[in-house]
Design a protein around this nucleic acid. Structure first.
Lengths: 217, 217
DNA sequence: GCCGAACCGTAACGTACGGTACGCATCGTC
DNA sequence: GACGATGCGTACCGTACGTTACGGTTCGGC
Protein backbone atom coordinates (compact mmCIF):
# COMPACT_ATOMS: atom_id res chain seq x y z
CA UNK A 1 0.00 0.00 0.00
CA UNK A 2 3.02 2.27 0.17
CA UNK A 3 3.47 4.66 -2.68
CA UNK A 4 6.79 5.62 -4.14
CA UNK A 5 7.77 9.23 -4.63
CA UNK A 6 7.08 9.07 -8.33
CA UNK A 7 3.61 7.68 -7.81
CA UNK A 8 1.80 10.98 -7.70
CA UNK A 9 -1.74 10.19 -8.75
CA UNK A 10 -2.99 8.47 -5.65
CA UNK A 11 -6.47 9.77 -6.16
CA UNK A 12 -7.97 6.75 -7.89
CA UNK A 13 -6.85 4.27 -5.29
CA UNK A 14 -8.50 6.17 -2.46
CA UNK A 15 -12.15 5.78 -1.60
CA UNK A 16 -14.24 8.72 -0.53
CA UNK A 17 -14.03 7.63 3.07
CA UNK A 18 -10.27 7.33 2.96
CA UNK A 19 -9.97 10.80 1.50
CA UNK A 20 -12.12 12.12 4.30
CA UNK A 21 -9.88 10.44 6.83
CA UNK A 22 -6.81 11.95 5.21
CA UNK A 23 -8.46 15.35 5.22
CA UNK A 24 -9.04 14.99 8.92
CA UNK A 25 -5.43 13.93 9.41
CA UNK A 26 -4.32 16.92 7.38
CA UNK A 27 -6.34 19.34 9.46
CA UNK A 28 -4.95 17.82 12.60
CA UNK A 29 -1.46 18.02 11.20
CA UNK A 30 -1.90 21.73 10.64
CA UNK A 31 -3.14 22.22 14.17
CA UNK A 32 -0.88 19.90 16.10
CA UNK A 33 2.19 19.56 13.96
CA UNK A 34 4.17 16.36 13.95
CA UNK A 35 3.11 15.41 17.44
CA UNK A 36 -0.31 14.24 16.42
CA UNK A 37 -1.27 10.86 17.78
CA UNK A 38 -2.98 8.01 16.03
CA UNK A 39 -5.71 8.20 18.64
CA UNK A 40 -6.31 11.84 17.84
CA UNK A 41 -6.53 11.15 14.12
CA UNK A 42 -8.94 8.29 14.70
CA UNK A 43 -11.11 10.43 16.93
CA UNK A 44 -11.05 13.39 14.56
CA UNK A 45 -11.85 11.20 11.58
CA UNK A 46 -14.46 9.20 13.50
CA UNK A 47 -12.82 5.99 12.57
CA UNK A 48 -11.12 3.26 14.50
CA UNK A 49 -7.42 2.94 14.94
CA UNK A 50 -7.63 -0.54 13.52
CA UNK A 51 -8.93 0.91 10.27
CA UNK A 52 -6.10 3.41 10.24
CA UNK A 53 -3.58 0.63 10.54
CA UNK A 54 -5.31 -1.57 8.02
CA UNK A 55 -5.41 1.21 5.44
CA UNK A 56 -2.08 2.89 5.95
CA UNK A 57 0.15 0.31 7.58
CA UNK A 58 1.61 2.39 10.35
CA UNK A 59 2.09 5.96 11.50
CA UNK A 60 4.61 6.79 8.82
CA UNK A 61 2.33 5.33 6.21
CA UNK A 62 -0.46 7.59 7.37
CA UNK A 63 1.76 10.66 7.28
CA UNK A 64 2.99 9.67 3.86
CA UNK A 65 -0.51 9.22 2.52
CA UNK A 66 -1.58 12.51 4.06
CA UNK A 67 1.23 14.46 2.45
CA UNK A 68 0.66 12.80 -0.91
CA UNK A 69 -3.03 13.47 -0.63
CA UNK A 70 -2.48 17.16 -0.06
CA UNK A 71 0.10 17.18 -2.84
CA UNK A 72 -2.38 15.70 -5.27
CA UNK A 73 -4.79 18.51 -4.47
CA UNK A 74 -2.49 21.43 -5.29
CA UNK A 75 -2.04 20.47 -8.91
CA UNK A 76 -2.38 23.88 -10.54
CA UNK A 77 -3.54 24.72 -14.02
CA UNK A 78 -0.69 25.33 -16.41
CA UNK A 79 -0.45 28.69 -18.07
CA UNK A 80 -2.12 28.97 -21.45
CA UNK A 81 0.35 28.98 -24.31
CA UNK A 82 -1.34 31.75 -26.26
CA UNK A 83 0.21 34.84 -27.81
CA UNK A 84 3.25 35.82 -25.83
CA UNK A 85 4.22 39.44 -25.56
CA UNK A 86 5.95 41.31 -22.81
CA UNK A 87 2.63 42.04 -21.20
CA UNK A 88 1.40 38.47 -21.03
CA UNK A 89 4.83 37.25 -19.97
CA UNK A 90 4.91 39.74 -17.14
CA UNK A 91 1.42 38.74 -16.14
CA UNK A 92 2.36 35.08 -16.15
CA UNK A 93 5.43 35.64 -14.03
CA UNK A 94 3.52 37.76 -11.56
CA UNK A 95 0.86 35.10 -11.41
CA UNK A 96 3.42 32.41 -10.66
CA UNK A 97 5.09 34.58 -8.05
CA UNK A 98 1.82 35.46 -6.38
CA UNK A 99 0.59 31.86 -6.39
CA UNK A 100 3.86 30.64 -4.96
CA UNK A 101 3.86 33.19 -2.18
CA UNK A 102 0.31 32.25 -1.32
CA UNK A 103 1.26 28.60 -1.19
CA UNK A 104 4.32 28.91 0.99
CA UNK A 105 2.55 31.23 3.40
CA UNK A 106 -0.47 28.97 3.79
CA UNK A 107 -0.98 27.11 7.02
CA UNK A 108 -1.01 23.71 5.39
CA UNK A 109 2.18 24.34 3.44
CA UNK A 110 3.95 25.48 6.57
CA UNK A 111 2.75 22.47 8.51
CA UNK A 112 3.66 20.03 5.75
CA UNK A 113 7.09 21.53 5.24
CA UNK A 114 7.71 21.45 8.98
CA UNK A 115 6.96 17.78 9.31
CA UNK A 116 8.87 16.99 6.11
CA UNK A 117 11.89 18.90 7.34
CA UNK A 118 11.92 17.18 10.69
CA UNK A 119 11.58 13.78 9.05
CA UNK A 120 14.29 14.54 6.50
CA UNK A 121 16.91 14.03 9.18
CA UNK A 122 16.39 10.35 9.91
CA UNK A 123 15.55 8.99 6.50
CA UNK A 124 12.75 6.64 7.41
CA UNK A 125 10.42 8.06 4.77
CA UNK A 126 10.59 10.36 1.76
CA UNK A 127 8.40 13.16 3.02
CA UNK A 128 11.08 15.66 2.11
CA UNK A 129 11.32 14.33 -1.41
CA UNK A 130 7.56 14.35 -1.81
CA UNK A 131 7.20 17.93 -0.62
CA UNK A 132 10.11 18.98 -2.78
CA UNK A 133 8.65 17.26 -5.83
CA UNK A 134 5.26 18.88 -5.42
CA UNK A 135 6.64 22.23 -4.32
CA UNK A 136 9.86 23.65 -5.64
CA UNK A 137 10.31 21.13 -8.50
CA UNK A 138 6.70 21.25 -9.63
CA UNK A 139 7.01 25.00 -9.80
CA UNK A 140 10.12 24.66 -11.92
CA UNK A 141 8.43 22.22 -14.27
CA UNK A 142 5.56 24.60 -14.79
CA UNK A 143 7.58 27.78 -15.03
CA UNK A 144 10.40 26.65 -17.28
CA UNK A 145 8.22 26.27 -20.39
CA UNK A 146 7.12 29.86 -19.89
CA UNK A 147 10.71 30.99 -19.62
CA UNK A 148 11.66 29.01 -22.71
CA UNK A 149 8.74 30.49 -24.60
CA UNK A 150 9.85 33.94 -23.48
CA UNK A 151 13.29 33.27 -24.83
CA UNK A 152 11.82 31.87 -28.04
CA UNK A 153 9.83 35.06 -28.45
CA UNK A 154 12.95 37.14 -27.94
CA UNK A 155 11.68 38.59 -24.67
CA UNK A 156 14.10 36.83 -22.37
CA UNK A 157 17.76 36.04 -22.65
CA UNK A 158 19.44 33.38 -20.52
CA UNK A 159 21.79 30.50 -20.95
CA UNK A 160 20.32 27.96 -18.61
CA UNK A 161 16.64 27.76 -17.78
CA UNK A 162 17.42 26.11 -14.49
CA UNK A 163 19.65 28.96 -13.38
CA UNK A 164 17.12 31.53 -14.49
CA UNK A 165 14.40 29.72 -12.62
CA UNK A 166 16.42 29.55 -9.44
CA UNK A 167 17.04 33.27 -9.58
CA UNK A 168 13.34 33.90 -10.01
CA UNK A 169 12.66 31.55 -7.12
CA UNK A 170 15.06 33.48 -4.92
CA UNK A 171 13.69 36.87 -5.91
CA UNK A 172 10.17 35.75 -5.10
CA UNK A 173 10.72 33.80 -1.94
CA UNK A 174 13.64 35.69 -0.43
CA UNK A 175 13.55 34.99 3.33
CA UNK A 176 9.84 34.36 3.56
CA UNK A 177 9.72 30.59 3.72
CA UNK A 178 12.53 30.03 6.20
CA UNK A 179 11.15 32.76 8.45
CA UNK A 180 7.70 31.24 8.39
CA UNK A 181 9.05 27.76 9.02
CA UNK A 182 11.03 29.06 11.98
CA UNK A 183 7.91 30.61 13.46
CA UNK A 184 8.49 34.23 12.57
CA UNK A 185 5.35 36.22 12.07
CA UNK A 186 5.64 37.57 8.55
CA UNK A 187 2.97 40.01 7.48
CA UNK A 188 1.67 38.65 4.19
CA UNK A 189 -1.57 40.26 3.21
CA UNK A 190 -3.09 39.98 -0.23
CA UNK A 191 -1.70 43.42 -1.02
CA UNK A 192 1.89 42.77 0.01
CA UNK A 193 1.88 39.50 -1.91
CA UNK A 194 0.78 41.35 -5.02
CA UNK A 195 3.45 43.98 -4.50
CA UNK A 196 6.16 41.41 -3.89
CA UNK A 197 5.12 39.48 -6.97
CA UNK A 198 5.33 42.62 -9.11
CA UNK A 199 8.69 43.61 -7.62
CA UNK A 200 10.19 40.16 -8.10
CA UNK A 201 8.96 40.02 -11.67
CA UNK A 202 10.38 43.41 -12.52
CA UNK A 203 13.69 42.51 -10.95
CA UNK A 204 13.75 39.26 -12.87
CA UNK A 205 13.01 41.06 -16.12
CA UNK A 206 15.72 43.57 -15.34
CA UNK A 207 18.18 40.73 -14.99
CA UNK A 208 17.03 38.41 -17.76
CA UNK A 209 15.02 40.58 -20.11
CA UNK A 210 16.37 40.89 -23.62
CA UNK A 211 18.57 43.92 -24.36
CA UNK A 212 20.42 43.43 -21.09
CA UNK A 213 24.00 42.39 -20.76
CA UNK A 214 23.46 40.40 -17.59
CA UNK A 215 22.20 37.10 -18.90
CA UNK A 216 25.50 35.39 -18.42
CA UNK A 217 25.37 35.84 -14.69
CA UNK B 1 19.11 28.84 34.26
CA UNK B 2 16.98 29.47 31.19
CA UNK B 3 18.23 32.11 28.85
CA UNK B 4 16.01 34.50 26.99
CA UNK B 5 16.36 35.02 23.28
CA UNK B 6 18.16 38.29 23.78
CA UNK B 7 20.69 36.78 26.14
CA UNK B 8 23.28 35.88 23.53
CA UNK B 9 26.56 35.87 25.40
CA UNK B 10 26.23 32.66 27.33
CA UNK B 11 29.93 31.96 27.11
CA UNK B 12 30.97 33.32 30.48
CA UNK B 13 28.40 31.37 32.47
CA UNK B 14 29.53 28.05 31.02
CA UNK B 15 32.40 26.10 32.47
CA UNK B 16 34.81 24.20 30.28
CA UNK B 17 33.12 20.95 31.12
CA UNK B 18 29.70 22.32 30.31
CA UNK B 19 30.92 23.54 26.96
CA UNK B 20 32.34 20.10 26.26
CA UNK B 21 28.99 18.56 27.12
CA UNK B 22 27.21 20.96 24.80
CA UNK B 23 29.68 20.18 22.05
CA UNK B 24 28.89 16.52 22.47
CA UNK B 25 25.19 17.28 22.39
CA UNK B 26 25.72 19.33 19.26
CA UNK B 27 27.59 16.56 17.51
CA UNK B 28 24.86 14.13 18.46
CA UNK B 29 22.23 16.55 17.24
CA UNK B 30 23.93 16.67 13.86
CA UNK B 31 24.03 12.90 13.68
CA UNK B 32 20.69 11.96 15.16
CA UNK B 33 18.52 14.96 14.61
CA UNK B 34 15.80 15.85 17.04
CA UNK B 35 15.32 12.29 18.18
CA UNK B 36 18.40 12.26 20.35
CA UNK B 37 17.78 10.94 23.83
CA UNK B 38 19.06 12.28 27.11
CA UNK B 39 20.71 8.93 27.72
CA UNK B 40 22.57 9.18 24.43
CA UNK B 41 23.78 12.68 25.23
CA UNK B 42 24.94 11.57 28.65
CA UNK B 43 26.77 8.60 27.21
CA UNK B 44 28.38 10.64 24.44
CA UNK B 45 29.45 13.36 26.85
CA UNK B 46 30.57 10.84 29.45
CA UNK B 47 28.45 12.47 32.08
CA UNK B 48 25.43 11.36 34.07
CA UNK B 49 21.89 12.20 33.25
CA UNK B 50 21.53 13.72 36.68
CA UNK B 51 24.22 16.25 35.80
CA UNK B 52 22.44 17.05 32.57
CA UNK B 53 19.26 17.79 34.46
CA UNK B 54 21.01 19.76 37.16
CA UNK B 55 22.77 21.95 34.61
CA UNK B 56 20.10 22.42 31.98
CA UNK B 57 16.82 21.79 33.72
CA UNK B 58 15.16 19.51 31.21
CA UNK B 59 15.41 18.31 27.65
CA UNK B 60 14.24 21.59 26.17
CA UNK B 61 16.74 23.43 28.32
CA UNK B 62 19.52 21.27 26.98
CA UNK B 63 18.45 21.84 23.39
CA UNK B 64 18.16 25.54 24.07
CA UNK B 65 21.61 25.73 25.58
CA UNK B 66 23.05 23.68 22.73
CA UNK B 67 21.60 25.96 20.08
CA UNK B 68 22.71 29.07 21.93
CA UNK B 69 26.15 27.58 22.39
CA UNK B 70 26.54 26.97 18.68
CA UNK B 71 25.13 30.42 17.97
CA UNK B 72 27.72 32.03 20.22
CA UNK B 73 30.45 30.30 18.24
CA UNK B 74 29.51 31.62 14.82
CA UNK B 75 29.95 35.26 15.75
CA UNK B 76 31.76 36.52 12.68
CA UNK B 77 34.13 39.44 12.38
CA UNK B 78 32.45 42.50 10.97
CA UNK B 79 33.76 43.92 7.75
CA UNK B 80 36.40 46.62 8.11
CA UNK B 81 35.04 50.06 7.39
CA UNK B 82 37.99 51.23 5.36
CA UNK B 83 38.05 52.99 2.02
CA UNK B 84 34.93 51.98 0.09
CA UNK B 85 35.05 51.80 -3.67
CA UNK B 86 33.21 49.57 -6.07
CA UNK B 87 35.93 46.98 -5.78
CA UNK B 88 35.92 46.68 -2.03
CA UNK B 89 32.13 46.81 -1.95
CA UNK B 90 31.93 43.96 -4.44
CA UNK B 91 34.47 42.01 -2.45
CA UNK B 92 32.52 42.56 0.76
CA UNK B 93 29.27 41.42 -0.80
CA UNK B 94 30.88 38.38 -2.30
CA UNK B 95 32.41 37.59 1.04
CA UNK B 96 29.06 37.84 2.79
CA UNK B 97 27.41 35.70 0.14
CA UNK B 98 30.10 33.08 0.26
CA UNK B 99 30.12 32.95 4.05
CA UNK B 100 26.37 32.67 4.16
CA UNK B 101 26.28 29.84 1.64
CA UNK B 102 28.93 28.02 3.62
CA UNK B 103 26.92 28.43 6.80
CA UNK B 104 23.57 27.27 5.48
CA UNK B 105 25.13 24.29 3.76
CA UNK B 106 27.03 23.13 6.82
CA UNK B 107 25.91 20.04 8.63
CA UNK B 108 25.43 21.80 11.93
CA UNK B 109 23.36 24.59 10.42
CA UNK B 110 21.13 22.09 8.69
CA UNK B 111 20.69 20.10 11.86
CA UNK B 112 20.00 23.16 13.98
CA UNK B 113 17.53 24.58 11.51
CA UNK B 114 15.79 21.23 11.30
CA UNK B 115 15.23 20.94 15.02
CA UNK B 116 14.28 24.61 15.27
CA UNK B 117 11.75 24.23 12.49
CA UNK B 118 10.16 21.19 14.03
CA UNK B 119 9.94 22.89 17.41
CA UNK B 120 8.52 26.05 15.90
CA UNK B 121 5.20 24.32 15.51
CA UNK B 122 4.30 23.78 19.14
CA UNK B 123 5.74 26.86 20.77
CA UNK B 124 7.27 25.34 23.86
CA UNK B 125 10.62 27.01 23.32
CA UNK B 126 12.10 29.78 21.16
CA UNK B 127 14.52 27.70 19.14
CA UNK B 128 13.16 29.18 15.95
CA UNK B 129 13.64 32.71 17.26
CA UNK B 130 17.17 31.93 18.40
CA UNK B 131 18.18 30.43 15.08
CA UNK B 132 16.55 33.31 13.25
CA UNK B 133 18.31 35.86 15.43
CA UNK B 134 21.72 34.33 14.93
CA UNK B 135 21.13 33.48 11.28
CA UNK B 136 19.09 35.61 8.97
CA UNK B 137 18.79 38.64 11.33
CA UNK B 138 22.43 38.61 12.36
CA UNK B 139 23.34 38.61 8.70
CA UNK B 140 21.08 41.59 8.13
CA UNK B 141 22.61 43.47 11.06
CA UNK B 142 26.10 42.94 9.70
CA UNK B 143 25.28 43.56 6.06
CA UNK B 144 23.09 46.62 6.32
CA UNK B 145 25.91 48.97 7.45
CA UNK B 146 27.82 47.90 4.36
CA UNK B 147 24.83 48.65 2.18
CA UNK B 148 24.34 52.02 3.85
CA UNK B 149 28.00 52.83 3.41
CA UNK B 150 27.69 51.87 -0.24
CA UNK B 151 24.79 54.24 -0.62
CA UNK B 152 26.67 56.95 1.25
CA UNK B 153 29.57 56.51 -1.15
CA UNK B 154 27.23 56.83 -4.11
CA UNK B 155 27.78 53.25 -5.19
CA UNK B 156 24.36 51.91 -4.33
CA UNK B 157 20.92 53.33 -4.69
CA UNK B 158 17.95 52.02 -2.74
CA UNK B 159 15.08 53.31 -0.71
CA UNK B 160 14.94 50.81 2.07
CA UNK B 161 17.95 48.93 3.36
CA UNK B 162 15.71 46.14 4.60
CA UNK B 163 14.22 45.56 1.17
CA UNK B 164 17.63 45.69 -0.47
CA UNK B 165 18.95 43.19 2.04
CA UNK B 166 16.09 40.80 1.49
CA UNK B 167 16.71 40.87 -2.25
CA UNK B 168 20.37 40.10 -1.68
CA UNK B 169 19.37 37.32 0.67
CA UNK B 170 17.11 35.83 -1.98
CA UNK B 171 19.69 36.13 -4.74
CA UNK B 172 22.27 34.36 -2.62
CA UNK B 173 20.20 31.64 -1.03
CA UNK B 174 17.66 30.97 -3.75
CA UNK B 175 16.38 27.43 -3.19
CA UNK B 176 19.45 26.12 -1.45
CA UNK B 177 18.36 26.19 2.17
CA UNK B 178 14.90 24.71 1.75
CA UNK B 179 16.26 21.97 -0.48
CA UNK B 180 18.94 21.09 2.03
CA UNK B 181 16.48 21.15 4.91
CA UNK B 182 14.16 18.83 2.98
CA UNK B 183 16.98 16.38 2.44
CA UNK B 184 17.84 17.16 -1.16
CA UNK B 185 21.45 16.53 -2.08
CA UNK B 186 22.69 19.87 -3.35
CA UNK B 187 26.17 19.91 -4.82
CA UNK B 188 27.94 22.75 -3.05
CA UNK B 189 31.65 22.60 -3.56
CA UNK B 190 33.99 25.42 -2.71
CA UNK B 191 34.03 26.36 -6.39
CA UNK B 192 30.27 26.50 -6.91
CA UNK B 193 29.89 28.56 -3.76
CA UNK B 194 32.40 31.05 -5.07
CA UNK B 195 30.66 31.19 -8.42
CA UNK B 196 27.23 31.61 -6.82
CA UNK B 197 28.54 34.37 -4.57
CA UNK B 198 29.93 36.24 -7.56
CA UNK B 199 26.76 35.77 -9.57
CA UNK B 200 24.51 36.91 -6.73
CA UNK B 201 26.69 39.96 -6.11
CA UNK B 202 26.69 40.97 -9.76
CA UNK B 203 22.94 40.55 -9.95
CA UNK B 204 22.49 42.61 -6.82
CA UNK B 205 24.71 45.36 -8.20
CA UNK B 206 22.79 45.26 -11.45
CA UNK B 207 19.59 45.87 -9.52
CA UNK B 208 20.78 48.30 -6.86
CA UNK B 209 23.97 49.78 -8.25
CA UNK B 210 23.92 53.51 -8.86
CA UNK B 211 23.03 54.64 -12.39
CA UNK B 212 20.20 52.12 -12.57
CA UNK B 213 16.55 52.97 -12.70
CA UNK B 214 15.45 49.95 -10.70
CA UNK B 215 16.00 51.06 -7.16
CA UNK B 216 12.33 51.70 -6.54
CA UNK B 217 11.48 48.06 -7.04
C1' DG C 1 -34.15 -13.10 7.38
C1' DC C 2 -29.06 -14.65 7.29
C1' DC C 3 -24.02 -14.29 6.62
C1' DG C 4 -19.84 -12.35 6.24
C1' DA C 5 -17.18 -8.33 5.56
C1' DA C 6 -16.06 -3.84 6.83
C1' DC C 7 -15.71 -0.78 10.40
C1' DC C 8 -16.37 1.70 14.95
C1' DG C 9 -15.17 2.24 19.84
C1' DT C 10 -12.32 0.97 23.34
C1' DA C 11 -9.53 -1.68 26.21
C1' DA C 12 -5.09 -3.70 26.65
C1' DC C 13 -0.08 -4.50 25.73
C1' DG C 14 4.78 -3.26 24.98
C1' DT C 15 8.19 -0.10 24.78
C1' DA C 16 10.87 3.95 24.55
C1' DC C 17 12.18 7.73 26.92
C1' DG C 18 11.96 11.82 30.13
C1' DG C 19 12.88 12.47 34.70
C1' DT C 20 14.55 10.93 39.59
C1' DA C 21 17.04 8.45 43.23
C1' DC C 22 20.99 6.16 44.95
C1' DG C 23 25.68 4.22 45.43
C1' DC C 24 30.43 5.07 44.60
C1' DA C 25 34.73 7.45 43.00
C1' DT C 26 37.45 11.65 42.78
C1' DC C 27 39.27 15.69 44.52
C1' DG C 28 40.04 20.03 46.66
C1' DT C 29 40.08 21.84 51.55
C1' DC C 30 41.04 21.77 56.42
C1' DG D 1 43.70 11.49 57.00
C1' DA D 2 38.69 13.03 57.32
C1' DC D 3 35.00 15.24 54.76
C1' DG D 4 31.88 17.54 51.99
C1' DA D 5 31.01 18.60 47.19
C1' DT D 6 30.84 17.37 42.57
C1' DG D 7 29.86 14.27 39.28
C1' DC D 8 29.74 9.44 37.05
C1' DG D 9 27.12 5.16 36.28
C1' DT D 10 22.98 2.87 36.72
C1' DA D 11 18.78 1.25 38.28
C1' DC D 12 14.18 2.70 38.62
C1' DC D 13 9.49 5.02 37.95
C1' DG D 14 5.69 7.07 35.34
C1' DT D 15 3.69 8.04 31.25
C1' DA D 16 2.64 8.74 26.55
C1' DC D 17 1.90 6.60 22.51
C1' DG D 18 2.32 3.13 18.75
C1' DT D 19 0.30 -1.12 17.89
C1' DT D 20 -2.83 -5.00 18.54
C1' DA D 21 -6.99 -7.46 19.97
C1' DC D 22 -11.82 -7.85 20.68
C1' DG D 23 -16.81 -7.12 21.08
C1' DG D 24 -20.62 -4.79 18.88
C1' DT D 25 -22.90 -2.62 14.79
C1' DT D 26 -24.03 -1.61 10.03
C1' DC D 27 -24.76 -3.10 5.42
C1' DG D 28 -24.62 -5.33 0.92
C1' DG D 29 -25.56 -9.88 -1.22
C1' DC D 30 -28.31 -14.29 -1.31
Amino acid sequence: MLHSVQDIDTSETLTERQQAVLDAALRLLVEEGDNLTMTAVARRASCSKETLYKWFGDRDGLLNATVQWQASKVRVAAVDRERLDIGSLTASLERFASDWLKVISSDTSIALNRVAVSHAGSGKDDLGAIVLQNGRFALARRLKPVLEAGRQAGLLDFEDAETAFRTFFGLVGRDVQIRLLLGDRVELTEATIGGDARRATQQFLALFGANNRLQSL
